Simulated assay, not measured.
Amino acid sequence: MKNNLLLIAVCLSGILKTQVGIGTANPNSNAALELSSASKGLLLPRLSLSDTASPTPLANHEKGIVVYNISTVNDVVEGIYINDGTRWYRLYTNQPNIGDVYYSFVAADHQGWYKLDGRNLTTLPAGAQANASKLAIGSTLPNATDRYLKQRGAAALLSAGGAQTVTLTQANLPNLTYTGTTTAAGEHTHQYTDRGNGTFDHKTGAGQLANTTVLTGQLTSSSGAHPHTVNVPSGGSGTPITIEPKNIAANAFIYLGY
């Protein structure tokens, strides 16, 4: 009954005056409603939004409605949201969101930010562990050491992959055909040197006929066309190619609170 009487009194005050004051007898002339207290604040409705596009748990989108969202799902996180008649928008402050990630030259954990170094979650404060679970982080933090963070693609969120080198295979080469055989068109000769330093016996029994003269510039017969096989080594050793670009080393941190 007491609460009902207070509500009736506030309504009557609003009818008699253009402004309503709670905790003050002289509300601001520019405000339809002014709350005044030295020890209490305004408590917004606390509810769980499903995503920014859905009005749920409201029946419809209503321009100007302000709520405090307590769920972390899809594209909403805990915080104050306002509705513009078609979707929800979060009212941002300087306070980071749970799950925010940034690079820094800071060497260690600081102010609710935790270094992504692959450590076990049990080493973190209880509140940070709970927030990590909300983000579906398993038993350990992701290890961002010597890695680049990328937007989610085909791989699962928080998964690690990739390599710093790549080895070219035959399939990576241009679609060209190289032959190692010379042309067979036309007769041709080959030059050679007859060293002539061997002896032989013509078996006459009278003596030996020796040919020890070096004959240079001798030519083979030019009869008949024929090809030649040529071996051309690549000189390669199969060494992987480094694909890591130039970089500046920094630490990656995730905000999980306290």
Rank of each mutant, 00 (worst) to 15 (best):
A9G: 08
V10T: 12
L12C: 03
I15D: 04
K17F: 13
T18C: 04
T18I: 01
Q19E: 10
G21P: 07
I22H: 01
N26K: 11
S36Y: 15
S36G: 06
S36W: 11
A38D: 04
S39P: 09
K40Y: 13
L43N: 15
L47K: 00
L49G: 13
P55V: 11
A59L: 08
N60S: 13
K63Y: 02
G64D: 07
V66R: 09
V77D: 12
E78D: 10
I82N: 01
I82L: 07
N83M: 05
R87K: 15
Y89F: 11
Y92Q: 10
T93P: 08
N94E: 11
N94F: 08
Q95W: 10
Y103A: 10
F105L: 09
V106I: 14
H110W: 08
K115G: 04
D117F: 03
L121E: 04
T122W: 03
T122E: 05
T122C: 00
P125Q: 07
S133M: 06
K134C: 01
A136R: 12
I137V: 04
I137R: 02
I137F: 03
T140A: 07
L141K: 06
L141C: 02
N143H: 04
A144K: 02
T145R: 08
R147L: 08
R147W: 06
R147D: 00
K150C: 04
G153H: 05
A163H: 00
Q164W: 05
V166K: 07
T167K: 10
N172F: 05
N172Q: 13
P174A: 02
P174N: 01
P174V: 00
L176P: 00
T181Q: 04
T183K: 11
T183M: 07
A185F: 11
G186F: 09
H188I: 05
T189D: 15
Y192C: 07
T193E: 13
F200I: 07
F200S: 14
D201Q: 13
T204E: 08
Q208F: 13
N211Q: 11
T213L: 15
V214C: 03
V214A: 06
T220G: 13
H226L: 13
P227I: 01
T229F: 06
V230S: 04
V232F: 06
G236D: 06
K246S: 14
A249G: 10
A249S: 14
A250T: 15
A252P: 03
F253V: 09
G257A: 01
Y258C: 10
